[in-house]
Simulated assay, not measured.
Amino acid sequence: MSVLGYHERRKVFRAGIISFGDAAISCTVRSLSSTGALLEIRGPAAVPKKFTLVIAADEFRRACRVIWMTEKRLGVVFELI
């Protein structure tokens, strides 16, 4: 539900894949909303600014753009295709 432009974010703990080109990086999806997600990776990695997030268990696949990043966490917004 959106209130003043904010979208409800729910905490989750799902295995995900950051997929780009022929490469992939495992991640944990920590929170999810209709517009984006918080992802956690094991350590510093070369994550591109745009990639596809895949959560196989949920048959979830979204094009993403990184909006912020720390050593082990990144916030992404989902892009329209």
Rank of each mutant, 00 (worst) to 15 (best):
L32T: 01
F13Q: 14
G5Y: 00
F51A: 02
A24D: 11
R9S: 07
S19I: 04
H7M: 08
R62Q: 12
G5A: 05
T70Q: 06
W68S: 11
E59S: 13
P48G: 00
S33L: 05
S2D: 13
G36D: 02
G5T: 03
A24L: 07
V29D: 03
S19E: 13
E8K: 13
L4H: 15
T52M: 07
D58K: 10
L53W: 01
I18L: 06
T70S: 14
S34F: 07
I25W: 03
C27E: 03
K72C: 11
K11I: 08
L74P: 00
G43N: 09
V76F: 04
S31Q: 03
P48N: 02
L80P: 07
L53D: 00
Y6N: 15
R65G: 09
L32C: 04
R62H: 12
E79S: 11
M69C: 11
R30I: 12
L80K: 15
T52E: 11
I17Y: 06
L4M: 14
R73H: 12
L53C: 06
R42D: 15
G75I: 01
L38F: 10
F13A: 13
T70D: 05
I81V: 14
R14I: 08
K72R: 14
R30F: 02
K49F: 07
R10T: 12
A37M: 04
E59K: 14
E8N: 11
